[in-house]
């Protein structure tokens, strides 16, 4: 069913339309909330449910532009609300590059490259980052939000988001070097 027809049916309160909405959009939303909430499947499911409950209530006011994007935003916000707070911020210094007193690298960074299908190991590596860094990376580099949008979503300053993004990318680089550098 076309999204516009579906939205019309939802506004008329037709029960089958609600089920269609959930079956069409639920799987992708669940995949996203599971990624944000990592190993907490109950929370990921609850976030999807939160999003649909909000959507059912708000469908009257929905401007009809992009149903999938609208639901995605609702589910993402719901998932962020269900993250354990404060976000875990264990030190990741061991994964960051080290420098001598004179500012030089302690050791030469190895060159490495990833195979074409590197999605799974990269996601595994991201999952190993503490939430404070992982979530910023997911929102910025995964979801494509800008620094200010990430800052608003997490209640942080732009500068702190930039700092955490930089640290997250450096830490991920360290994990990927350990993973892919060994295979070459």
């Amino acid at each position: 069913m076309e999204d516009t027809l579906l939205v019309d049916a939802l506004r008329r309160g037709e029960a089958p339309a609600f089920e269609t909405l959930v079956r069409n959009h639920g799987p992708r939303l669940l995949e996203m909330t599971r990624r944000l909430l990592r190993h907490d499947d109950d929370a990921a499911r609850a976030a999807v449910q939160d999003a649909f409950v909000l959507a059912f209530d708000a469908i009257e006011g929905f401007d009809g532009v992009e149903l999938a994007a609208w639901l995605h935003d609702l589910a993402r916000s719901a998932a962020l609300l269900r993250l354990p707070r404060p976000l875990a911020e264990e030190p990741i210094d061991a994964l960051l590059p080290a420098f001598l007193d004179d500012g030089h690298h302690v050791r030469h960074p190895h060159a490495w490259s990833a195979p074409a299908e590197a999605g799974a190991p990269v996601r595994d590596a991201v999952d190993r980052l503490p939430d404070a860094f992982r979530i910023v990376l997911l929102l910025h580099d995964g979801e494509g939000l800008g620094v200010s949008a990430v800052a608003r979503a997490l209640g942080l300053t732009d500068n702190l988001v930039k700092l955490r993004l930089h640290r997250a990318r450096q830490a991920l680089r360290g994990l990927l070097e350990a993973h892919f550098g060994r295979e070459n």
Partner: peptide, 8 residues
């Protein structure tokens, strides 16, 4: 790689 692997 991160952007590729994490895109929705």
């Amino acid at each position: 790689l991160g952007k590729l692997a994490l895109a929705p």
